[in-house]
Amino acid sequence: MGFFDTILLPFTWAVSWVLSMFHTVLGFLGMDSASGWTWTLALVLLVILIRTLLIPVFVKQIKSQRAMQELQPEIKKLQAKYKNKKDQLSRQAMAMEQQQLFKDRGTSPFAACLPMLVQMPFFFALYRVLVSASQAADNNETIGALSADEVHSFANSSFAGAQMSDVLKDNVGENFDLNVVVVAVILIILMVTAMFYMQKTLMGKNMSEAAQTGQFAQTQKIMLYALPAVFAIGGFNFPVGVLIYWTATNFWAVGQQLFIIRRNPTPGSIAERELNERRAVKGLPPIGKAAQEAEEKSQAEAQKPKGQRHQPVKKPRKKR
């Protein structure tokens, strides 16, 4: 066992235990334990479990994005202060002041890196479990919490004619297997499309006008094309089991995103305007930036008469 596998051991155990548990439960519920569909469903349930556990992280992220909106005036002030100072040290000083500002409000526009890092070992562990399944089945070995029988069942179960441990790369050319190629290609197309669609709607609809220009938007644009490419190349090298996991994850992400865009869009985005239009049809007051603007307008109107009213001026008698 290599160094990498040793580090991954606890994660491999956790992932394989959950997988085994779901598989057993599905067996109890009357599904065929040897069928690839049962294992596929177990994988999908694993995705649902992981993504459900991550929901608080996303909620937290969205809340802090909203809090950012309130900070805009102060950030503008800061930008004005450093307007003519573009050297590296001034940039640093600006970054420092900005971070202090975020901290004072208990918010940050930046997603913390830990949630992403936390997912990684689980993904690698799952990858290890799925990749090593066929070999372990041949040697009658166990993988983590999966018994030798379960490993056998998993490695030999087929999903629409492709085995869980089949890799697209090994099934083109000499050992051409039409079933594997079709299943893998369909899964890759599904997950890449989901990813592209998600990124596209995020950029088009759920970013405020301010965010659609500037560095952040640039990064998003790179991601739009780079990520699907990475997934397509990865899909060529990964076993069908991993592709199922990935496709399920991407579909969940799309669903979650559509839900957020519909119910709680970014202030100042197209999605928010659409939400307010829907609310207007139902006769509900607007929310978000539009509501804020409406309130400011009514306040300004309320203040106007006071400012405009002329005090009666005492005029000297001779001018009358």
């Binding site: 971070q99 975020f102 830990l114």
Partner: peptide, 10 residues
């Protein structure tokens, strides 16, 4: 320490 329940700052 860089996780969603940490406020960051200087």
């Amino acid at each position: 320490r860089c996780h969603p329940w940490q406020d960051g700052g200087i």
